[in-house]
Every structure is written in structure tokens, then in C-alpha cells.
Measured scan of single mutants.
Amino acid sequence: IEKFKLLAEKVEEIVAKNARAEIDYSDAPDEFRDPLMDTLMTDPVRLPSGTVMDRSIILRHLLNSPTDPFNRQMLTESMLEPVPELKEQIQAWMREKQSSDH
């Protein structure tokens, strides 16, 4: 029984630690959010139409349809242009958020 109590305490400790580690990014500025999924972008790319999306989301879309989801023009992965300035701004915002939450 004592071992179970210790195990339960350890589990509670881990759960509390994980809860502290989770950071809420739901208040991200609109320009940091993917327009299709409304999630925080981690690897922004510009489509030929000028729309900026997260790379993982547009690549997932391209698996089903080789088109720009906003104007239905033909689109391939090679046409995606990285946006390193925005990526750095997002990373800086995330770092600031992490340091203010801890």
C-alpha cells in the first residue's frame, strides 16, 4: 500500500509539472495564426496569391488538392516561399510568452 501511495504522489507531481509546462498560445496575434486552421504558425510560407500559411497545413492540403485553398489556382510545394522574418517574430513572441508564464 505504501508503494501505491508513493506512486500516486509521483503521478500527481508529474501531472502538476506538465500542467505548468503547457503554455497557452490562444492569444496569438492574428498575423501569427494560420488563416485556414486558426492555429499558431511555426513555419510560415507565402503562397503566390500573397496569403501566408503554416507550411504543415498547406502541405497537408496539397496532398488532397494541388491548389491554393483560397483561389483554387494551381499550387505546388516548390511555389511556397518561406517567410523567415515572420517566423522569427513568432518565435520571439513564443519565447516572451514562455518567460512570462514561468
Score class of each variant (00 low, 15 high):
Met37Ile: 04
Thr67Ala: 01
Asp43Glu: 13
Ile90Val: 13
Leu6His: 09
Val15Asp: 07
Lys3Tyr: 04
Glu13Gly: 11
Val45Ala: 02
Pro35Val: 08
Pro48Ser: 02
Glu13His: 05
Arg72Leu: 01
Leu47Met: 04
Ala16Arg: 04
Gln91Arg: 12
Lys97Asp: 12
Gly50Cys: 02
Arg95Ile: 09
Val11Gln: 12
Leu59Arg: 09
Gly50Ser: 05
Glu31Val: 09
Lys17Ser: 04
Pro66His: 08
Leu36Glu: 04
Lys17Ile: 09
Lys17Trp: 07
Lys3Arg: 06
Glu12Asn: 01
Glu13Asp: 12
Lys97Asn: 15
Asp38His: 03
Thr42Ser: 11
Pro69Gln: 02
Leu36Arg: 00
Ile14Phe: 15
Ser26Ile: 15
Asp30Glu: 12
Pro84Ala: 13
Asn18Ile: 08
Tyr25His: 08
Asp30Lys: 15
Asp27Ala: 05
Ser100Gly: 13
Lys10His: 07
Glu22Val: 09
Leu86Arg: 06
Thr51Pro: 15
Arg55Cys: 01
Ile1Phe: 02
Met79Ile: 04
Asp43Gln: 01
Asp30Ala: 06
Glu31Gly: 09
Met74Phe: 02
Lys97Ser: 11
Val83Gln: 03
Gly50Ala: 02
Pro82Gln: 06
Ser65Phe: 04
Val15Pro: 09
Ser78Tyr: 05
Val15Lys: 06
Asp34Tyr: 00
Asp43His: 06
Leu36Gln: 00
Pro29Leu: 05
Ser56Tyr: 04
Glu22Ala: 05
Glu88Gly: 15
Leu36Ala: 01
Lys97Ile: 13
Glu2His: 02
Gln91Thr: 12
Val45Gly: 00
Glu96Asn: 07
Ala21Glu: 13
Leu36Ser: 02
Arg20Gln: 14
Glu12Ser: 12
Glu12Trp: 02
Glu9Lys: 09
Asp43Cys: 04
Glu9Tyr: 15
Ser49Ala: 15
Ile14Lys: 13
Glu9Val: 07
Trp93Thr: 03
Ile23Leu: 12
Ala28Val: 13
Glu13Leu: 03
Asp30His: 06
Lys97Tyr: 13
Val52Asp: 00
Leu6Tyr: 12
Leu7Ile: 09
Ser100Ile: 14
Ser100His: 04
Ser78Thr: 07
Asn64Ser: 05
Lys3Ser: 04
Pro66Thr: 05
Met53Phe: 01
Lys97Thr: 13
Gln89Leu: 08
Ser100Leu: 04
Arg55Ser: 03
Met53Arg: 00
Lys3Leu: 02
Phe4Asp: 06
Leu47Ala: 09
Met94Ser: 03
Pro35His: 00
Arg95Gly: 10
Asp43Ala: 03
Glu81Met: 06
Asp101Gly: 13
Asp30Val: 08
Leu63Arg: 10
Ser65Gly: 03
Phe32Leu: 05
Asn64Cys: 02
Pro84Ser: 12
Gln89Glu: 06
Gln91His: 10
Arg20His: 14
Ala92Val: 11
His102Gln: 08
Ser26Val: 15
Leu36Val: 15
Glu12Tyr: 12
Arg33Gly: 00
His61Tyr: 00
Phe4Ser: 10
Pro82Glu: 06
Gln73Glu: 04
Gln73His: 02
Leu63Pro: 03
Val11Lys: 06
Arg55His: 05
Glu96His: 03
Asn18Met: 06
Ser26Arg: 08
Ile57Ser: 14
Val11Ile: 05
Val52Leu: 04
Glu85Ala: 08
Met94Phe: 15
Asp24Gly: 10
Met94Ala: 14
Gln73Arg: 05
Tyr25Val: 01
His102Leu: 10
Arg60Trp: 00
Tyr25Ile: 02
Gln73Ala: 15
Leu40Gly: 01
Trp93Phe: 14
Ile1Pro: 00
Ile90Leu: 06
Pro82Ser: 15
Met41Lys: 00
Ile14Arg: 05
Ala92Asn: 05
Ala19Met: 14
Ala19Ser: 07
Gln91Asn: 07
Arg20Leu: 14
Gln73Gly: 02
Lys3Val: 04
Leu63His: 11
Lys3Asp: 00
Ser56Thr: 05
Arg60Gln: 04
Pro82Arg: 05
Ile58Ser: 01
Leu59Gln: 09
Thr42Lys: 04
Leu62Val: 02
